[in-house]
């Protein structure tokens, strides 16, 4: 009960009026922001669905243009980062702000907030790196936001096998692919920047405590949301 009073203070809504949503403001604000972000991605994904399924000609087959195994690995990275985010959150909720500590009676070592958040940041940064690499390769091969670049490798493939490469729909493929994945990548980048900022201003100086780790919970919400959007995007863009 010692720190329970203070904990109840900061991790709960401030209003003495009546329970609103029952959450403190930062978290509530993030929820509202995520609702708005859902609408943003809905606009992009909805347009993709309308454009893709409104076309009479075939869309490029999965894996024809895109490197699915590479992005599959990238998806795995992002899922790992979500797991490490949960670990970071659990660590600080239990009051473990340090990097690693021995676990009694086992060979294992257990990480704290500093360790798990670092893992999350690194996974996120690696995801962005892989995506940048993927973009560079795609553009090199001739897949651009405007479609298949004339005279490029992919354009030649498309000439040889117009159905598999969706020769007639390349322009829309490029438009939707780069816009959707690009804005997702932008969201991941923002998350990485925000987490890095928190890491240096709050986590390393050990400003979080089990009484107040609102920043971690709030950024965690965002991070899981970005992860979820990616799983949807990966499914509809790479696998279908």
């Amino acid at each position: 009960m010692t720190h329970a009073t203070a904990a109840a203070d900061l991790m709960r809504p401030p209003s003495p009026a009546e329970p609103g949503a029952g959450v403190y403001s930062n978290k509530l604000g993030m929820w509202v922001f995520l609702a708005s972000d859902v609408m943003f991605f809905t606009a992009l994904i909805g347009s993709y669905i309308i454009l893709r399924f409104g076309m009479s000609e075939a869309w490029a087959a999965p894996g024809a243009v895109l490197n699915v195994p590479l992005t599959g690995f990238n998806t795995f990275l992002l899922i790992c980062s979500s797991v490490s985010m949960v670990k970071a959150y659990a660590a600080i909720a239990d009051g473990k702000p340090y990097f690693l500590r021995p676990v009694a009676g086992k060979m294992l070592r257990d990480g704290g907030l500093k360790f798990w958040l670092l893992v999350t940041i690194l996974c996120g940064a690696a995801f962005v790196g892989v995506q940048v690499y993927e973009y560079i390769k795609l553009v090199e091969h001739g897949f651009t936001p405007a479609g298949y670049r004339e005279g490029s490798l992919i354009a030649e493939h498309a000439l040889a096998d117009p159905v598999r490469y969706g020769a007639a729909t390349g322009a829309m493929y490029g438009s939707t692919f780069f816009t959707m994945t690009g804005f997702h990548g932008f969201h991941v980048t923002c998350g990485v920047v925000a987490m890095t900022y928190l890491y240096f201003t709050k986590v390393l100086p050990e400003k979080y405590s089990p009484q107040d780790y609102r920043g971690i919970e709030t950024i965690g919400l965002y991070w899981h949301f970005v992860d979820l959007v990616w799983i949807i995007l990966f499914t509809i863009v790479y696998l279908i």
Binding site: S36, F40, L44
Partner: peptide
């Protein structure tokens, strides 16, 4: 507003980087 933002971004891309939404 995010829906308008999404639409405006697509329009901007149509004008600048060659997409064809």
């Amino acid at each position: 507003l995010p829906v308008l933002q999404g639409a405006a971004i697509m329009l901007l891309f149509d004008q600048t980087i060659g997409t064809h939404f």
